[in-house]
């Protein structure tokens, strides 16, 4: 893990890494060694809830091309939703924290 290129953004949402959904509070985005993708470095995103411990993590590891395509696609989908006037740009009510089964 030798690049140490990592950013964290506070987010609001839900994630699923086992049978149960849980609130995710942070997205950790890094360009560093992936755990499973057979590349030396990858764009890694971990959706986590630090209050629930290291196991509360939904992880994806992407090639650079896949990451760029994902960014473009998210922007395109949000733009389309905005154009149609269906964007719900408002906070989500928090639920009591639940521990994911993998925690």
């Amino acid at each position: 893990m030798c690049t140490m290129i990592a950013h964290q953004v506070r987010i609001q949402g839900r994630g699923k890494s086992g049978p149960e959904w849980f609130e995710v509070h942070e997205a950790n985005v890094s360009y560093d060694h992936p755990y499973d993708l057979p590349l030396e470095h990858a764009l890694n995103i971990d959706f986590v809830n630090e209050t629930l411990g290291p196991g509360a993590r939904v992880a994806v590891e992407l090639s650079v091309d896949a990451a760029r395509q994902l960014v473009k696609t998210i922007e395109a989908v949000l733009a389309q939703a905005d154009q149609r006037g269906v964007l719900e740009d408002r906070p989500v009510a928090a639920e009591p924290a639940r521990s994911p089964s993998v925690a």
């Binding site: 893990m1 990592a6 950790n28 890094s30 755990y35 971990d46 630090e50 196991g55 993590r57 925690a103």
Partner: peptide, 19 residues
């Protein structure tokens, strides 16, 4: 000190914290 879980989950936490 970073918590316990699978080595990957704990490692990912430390990665996010800058090592």
């Amino acid at each position: 000190r970073d918590g316990h879980g699978t080595p990957e989950d704990v490692g990912a936490k430390v990665r996010a914290a800058g090592g």
